[in-house]
Structure formats: C-alpha cells, structure tokens
Simulated scan of single mutants.
Amino acid sequence: MSRGHFYADGDIAEIYRWFAAEAAATSPTWQAVSEWVARTASIADRLAGLPGMKRQPQLFLAALRRLDAPLTPGPALEGWIAHHWDAVQRTILTHSTQTNEVGRCAVHLPLLAGLAAESGPIALVEVGSSAGLCLLPDAYAYRYRFDDRPELTLGAGTPVIPCRISGATPEQVTYASPAIAWRCGIDTAPLDPTDPEVAAWLRALIWPGQAEREDRLAAALATATALGAATGRPPVPVVTGDALEALPDVVAEARRHADTVVVMHTATLSYVSRDRRARFGALVGGLGARWISCEGERVVPEVRDRLASGTYDGPPCFVLALDGRPLARVGQHGGWIDWL
C-alpha cells in the first residue's frame, strides 16, 4: 500500500473531483473550476507534470487568483492558462499552501483557555504557523453563540470572530482568553505578516466568494503589524525548519517559560505523508507536551482510531482533539463547534 499522499500520487481528475465536492458548500467558483479541470485533459495534463505535493488544487487555484485569471470555466480560462502557464507554474513552485485563517482561533481558544486555567500560563507552539496569525488568539475578540445560553463576547481586539456552539461543552473547556506566557511557530517557509506580497498571497488562498474571511485576514494582519511596531520585533517568533526535527528544541525552550507546553496544528498534517503523520503523534507524546490537533477525521491516526463508529453526513469539517482524544467536529475555517 502506498505510504505517500493523495495529492502527490493520485489521478488529477480524481483529485479535482474530490476537491470540487469539498468546495461545493462554501465556494461555488472553486467547485465549478475544479469540476472543469477534472474533465479538461489539456489542463489536467499540465497539472500532472507538477512535482509531488505541488499538484494540490489549493496551490493551482490560488495561483490563478493571484495572477488575476478569469475564473469562469471554459475556453477563455483554458486559453489564459496556456498563455500564462510559465507564470502559473512559477507561482506554484515558489509558494506553499499556508492559509492563515484566524477564524480557527475560535475553536482553539476554549481548549487553550481550559489548559491555562488548569495549570497557569501556557507556552504555545504552532506547527505550520505560516504568518503566525493563529499564535495570537489573545489579541482578537470572539462572539460565541450557544443553543442553550446567552451569546458570549470575549476580548476587545480585532477581528471579532464569530463561532456557533452546539453539543455539551466538555469539562476541560473554558470560554475565556487564555494566559499565554510564550509563543513560537515552526514552519518550513515562514511568512512575514507585515509584507504586502505575503498579504496578497494569503488573500489569494482564500476561496472566491468568502468576503468575510478576506476582511478577517486584513484585520488580523493589521493587528499583527501593530503588535510588531509596538515592540520593534516580529509579533511572533518562528523557527524555520521541519517540525519533526525542530520540535524537540522548541519545546525545550518553551519549558523555560511555562510549566505547560501546548503543541497545536490545524490543517497541517494533511499536507505530509502518512508515515510522517504517524511519527508526529509519537514525537509530541514523548516530549510531554499537551497536543491540540485540528485536522480531517482520517488524518491523525490517534484521533481516527478513537472516533465513534458511524457515518458522518454533515458539512465538511475537521476533528478537534486534545492529546489524541476527539472532542468536537468544527468548521474547517472556524465558524462552528459541535462538541461530541
């Protein structure tokens, strides 16, 4: 059995049909373009020639957006791609899928706050931190809407991130701003949130039709820039490197600042091989850190094997887990939490 990755090993038409289904609920534009790619041999053949993980739809589609391609499927788009293929390919090869969706902070926050309430201020490490925006959960404001209690607003920063809550809240969860003593990211290619080109690429990664996400990104970038200007240094330190290699040293440094170290990642392990996913869980456990994962339900082996049996038929989601134990299904870009 292959131990690689669907994006690297799969048939392009199959990959894009799958992605079209993923995008259907929230981006009709990407659904239509992906379905068109799946049935257009001239485009599929070009994409098949890309190396490894560069074949992922998110990169190609973001490149189209960044380069102002016409996004209506058909001859005009096919001709545009043929004429601009060198620029499209160069953008794909020199960039990564590093979506920094701060809406996800709303689903991280209750677990982070619960851990801080239990043990005091935490040291927060994010794997796949991109521009580091999700390492600043205490800098934003939140609006939680519940099925069984009044709405709760937390924080006074920007953006204001909405989140709908359903299901019974677990005991280890606290709806509050977490006390964070120290924070650090790990990324193979960190992004500078103050760089206009970085901002443009992060915007291109947002799916068409999601204006609320674009506004949230702009507000978070402004917050990060202001924090950096106030301190005269980057708002969040980020270590450049491979997570499996860099994590032990980063966790060791984190322990100098707090008794509880939390390692967090969202939509990160889905971009690495199955072998590396399995090694990651064992590594975090061996370091004695608390582990918050937020990935597709089959991505993290420890979480997948502990999910209740049965077929999930709701909207596309991630599974939020603490130390490998699934606690909730959540919106892929934040927005909702359904506690299990």
Rank of each mutant, 00 (worst) to 15 (best):
S96K: 04
R145V: 01
T225S: 14
R17I: 05
Y7F: 14
T240I: 05
G10A: 11
D147Q: 07
A226W: 07
P73L: 11
D305W: 07
C134L: 02
P196R: 15
D313F: 02
I337P: 01
W80T: 07
P51F: 01
V125S: 05
C163D: 00
R3H: 12
P57W: 02
T153S: 14
A230V: 00
G241T: 04
I12A: 11
L217Q: 07
P248M: 02
L111D: 03
A69W: 01
I292Y: 11
H257W: 06
L307E: 02
E151N: 04
P110N: 01
A141F: 10
A8R: 09
T231P: 00
A24Q: 08
I292W: 10
W80A: 12
M264V: 15
V303Q: 13
C317R: 05
A308N: 03
I161D: 02
Q172A: 15
A246C: 11
A226R: 11
S293A: 15
S96T: 06
T91F: 05
S293T: 14
G286S: 10
V284H: 01
S177E: 15
R145K: 07
W80V: 09
W336L: 05
R233W: 00
D138S: 09
G103L: 12
T194M: 07
R183Y: 12
Q31I: 00
S293P: 00
T26D: 13
A8I: 06
A267M: 07
A25H: 14
G334V: 03
P28C: 13
W291Y: 13
Q332F: 03
M1E: 08
M264N: 13
W182V: 03
P110T: 00
A13K: 07
A116L: 06
P196M: 11
R306H: 09
A200M: 06
A243D: 06
E214M: 10
A308I: 01
A258R: 09
T225E: 15
G288D: 12
E214W: 08
A76C: 12
V300H: 10
A82T: 12
A246N: 06
T311D: 03
T174I: 13
D323I: 07
A282S: 14
C163N: 08
G4L: 05
P137K: 00
E22H: 10
A226I: 01
D313R: 15
P28V: 10
D9C: 08
V37F: 13
A139T: 02
R3G: 13
D338A: 12
P237G: 03
A168L: 12
A282L: 10
V107D: 02
L227S: 05
T223E: 12
L247E: 06
H333G: 10
W18D: 15
G49V: 06
A224P: 01
R203C: 06
S177D: 14
E14W: 03
R306Y: 14
P110C: 01
A181D: 05
V107K: 04
A258V: 13
Y175M: 08
R203K: 12
D45V: 13
L61F: 03
G281E: 15
H5I: 04
D338S: 09
G4D: 09
L152P: 11
Q89D: 04
L50P: 13
W291I: 07
S166N: 00
R213H: 12
Y271G: 14
T158N: 04
L50N: 09
A176I: 08
L247K: 08
A41N: 13
W30E: 13
L154V: 10
P235S: 11
G335N: 02
F60C: 08
R216Q: 10
V37I: 15
T223I: 10
L47Y: 15
E101Y: 08
R277F: 05
